[in-house]
Design a protein around this nucleic acid. Structure first.
Lengths: 377, 377
DNA sequence: CTGAAAGCGCTTACAG
DNA sequence: CTGAAAGCGCTTACAG
């Protein structure tokens, strides 16, 4: 690399700027000026002057317009890189009438879930020149919708990602369509146009749990549900009970407990289930939090997991591997879902509705740990 | 309230606009026009026209300038409220040469910690008209500093909040001072000017743990440290050992294990400690994750908590109450720390260095649960 | 392929 | 206490 032949030395081009000399100020010496008063950023005008073109041409390079001479483009790009120029997002947004801001709207899913979605989305958004505005909210608040409407108009969000359970809110989706705000819903059932969804495949996942339990030889199998108004709860129940049935097993009503995806509800429901005359030998908890609640009850009652009771979770949250015994659970590729949602949303914002991305779904799989085993004879 | 006398009805003021009729377009009928073409937001010009003042006066009201007639202010505020006007942050930022964006920079603290800080900060920032830009990073990456420098200049961040462990990074602090970016470090030791800190009081907290163990009657007490290059690890050790000493108890070297604030390190260190000829009867794990690792080892070795072994954590993360037995731990008011950091930072950005806020520290306290008890005789 | 003019929605000096 | 002009850093039509 160091001793490349100096070719094209005879091109006849004069790379020096024929300094227009107006406005060029102190910088019209031969050498390219890089330094700037501290705290001062280069602007598009600086680049234009350095490159000896109009700011419009620089703008074209920034926005990757095809109508720029290859040589010009290369030169301008080099200069921008050299001085460390990056266009001001605010000025850009103002002129574009766009914000390059994507909202992340969520209510109450657990912390690891939010963090993972967030980091997945952030990675993708940064690459594409967007930033993320996180917006925790309360879907039961009276001004839930007004609050979000205000956020969107105030910040001129280019789009929003919705996490369950707010992703299931039909009114919110309607509002977003009304105000013409592109959105992607991370959700467990196809409640919308595929282009607005990232699907989490809860039904298939629950079926995998059923399969695992069936293979272990369990016949007295119970399930703890999530909140009745959570779609994922419904999906998991359907997938689980259908798969059991397909394997000749039943999920009788007394083995279905109404939980709430919480630790406390898991403990309470397990209490109920383990008090039955014929208690189940396996419990599919709605999620990992619920499973921890089941552990709690088993602990208090002196039931050993998995010898006396098999427990399965859902999420593979950090909690799952910290419990003793470690928890068998379904792993959701949550980070990927965040990334996918971001990519899909930006594609929509940019106007390319990629049909291949239309059926965005993600494949979870079972992580078998210590909490599941064959039923005691 | 409902039947207040209608006073001031004889003020003689005509609230109607003597429409200047130029530019007033179609809206010059008597009634105030609120509706707008869908997707179109009101601008400062709309408000000015509706209020029959210059946009500068509206600007003064927005920015709470004292130089506005009270009557004028009231009228303009009413109009803004009525049409649901809020100034465009991008235009505002561009003109102000400020972004109203605060960065949250963190590397690797656990998810609940980040979420709580985030929501605490967000609550405060929103009230003050700022938004939060979250920025997960990798402090071991080669371009760690360049990455952050770039983020700040690209987004023109008005300030940043630093979370441990990056808050302890001296180079980063130096960089921030160089580029003249206000910052607040959430940190466990006063490594900086008080106005740049929110202190987490790790030393006092660890002392409280020592006190609890002493009162229970433990004499063979061990501690698992965090990473050597984490300041909090040092603080907790100092606070713990000094407090033990003050109570006539020792923390001999063989009872000090080098952990890493992780589940795995907790398990490994516990293995070591419990293999000693005279194993400790109590272990102060560096944090809750580490405590979970201790639980794991105790579980595998058939040691019962708290009968055979007392375990104390630090953080009161969600994990603490989910473990069986539930974990005695120090609760840090993390949400408050996020709020405080945001408030402090904005005060600095706005130029008021509130001296009363200079010693911002937060008071943790011990949550006694099931994992601590007297030593077995 | 390139540029001069006008504008995005707000603000800062500068006048009154 | 109030306003007309110019500008923040970028873009969109509109011309060449």
């Amino acid at each position: 690399m160091a001793n490349q032949p100096a070719r094209k030395k005879d091109t006849g081009k004069t790379p020096k700027h024929d300094a227009k000399s107006k406005e060029a100020g102190t910088k019209q010496s031969g050498a390219t000026v890089v330094a700037l008063p501290p705290g001062k950023k280069h602007t598009i005008n600086d680049i234009a002057r350095l490159a000896n073109v109009s700011k419009k041409t620089v703008s074209r390079v920034i926005n990757e317009s095809p109508f720029v001479h290859e040589e010009t483009r290369t030169r301008i790009n080099a200069i921008m890189k050299q001085v460390g120029y990056s266009p001001d997002p605010q000025a850009r947004g103002l002129a574009f009438r766009r914000s390059f801001l994507i909202g992340l709207i969520y209510d109450n899913p657990n912390a690891p879930y939010v963090i993972n979605i967030q980091e997945g989305a952030l990675g993708a958004l940064r690459r594409m020149g967007y930033e993320l505005v996180v917006h925790p909210c309360d879907r039961n608040s009276a001004d839930f919708l007004a609050d979000i409407r205000h956020l969107i108009s105030r910040q001129k969000l280019d789009g929003v990602v919705l996490l369950p359970p707010v992703s299931e809110n039909a009114e919110l989706a309607t509002l977003l369509r009304e105000v013409n705000c592109p959105y992607v819903r991370v959700i467990s059932a196809a409640l919308d146009d595929p282009q607005n969804l990232v699907l989490s495949q809860d039904r298939q996942s629950a079926a995998e749990v059923a399969d695992h339990l069936a293979k272990l030889g369990h016949t007295r199998i119970a399930m703890i549900l999530g909140p009745a108004n959570y779609r994922s709860s419904h999906e998991r129940l359907t997938g689980f009970s259908e798969a059991l049935q397909a394997r000749g097993l039943a999920l009788p009503p007394q083995y279905i407990a109404q939980g709430a995806y919480t630790f406390e509800s898991g403990a309470t429901c397990a209490e109920l289930l383990l008090s039955l005359a014929e208690p189940p030998t396996a419990i599919f908890a709605g999620n990992d939090e619920t499973a921890a609640g089941v552990y709690r009850t088993a602990y208090l009652r002196g039931r050993r997991i998995p010898d006396d009771l098999t427990v399965i979770g859902f999420d593979d949250s950090p909690l799952a591997s910290r419990l003793c015994p470690s928890l068998t659970t379904m792993r959701q590729p949550i980070r990927d879902m965040g990334r996918l949602a971001a990519e899909k949303l930006v594609a929509k914002v940019a106007g390319n509705i990629d049909p291949s991305a239309s059926q965005t779904a993600v494949i979870p799989h079972l992580i078998v740990r210590e909490s599941s085993g064959p039923p005691r004879r």
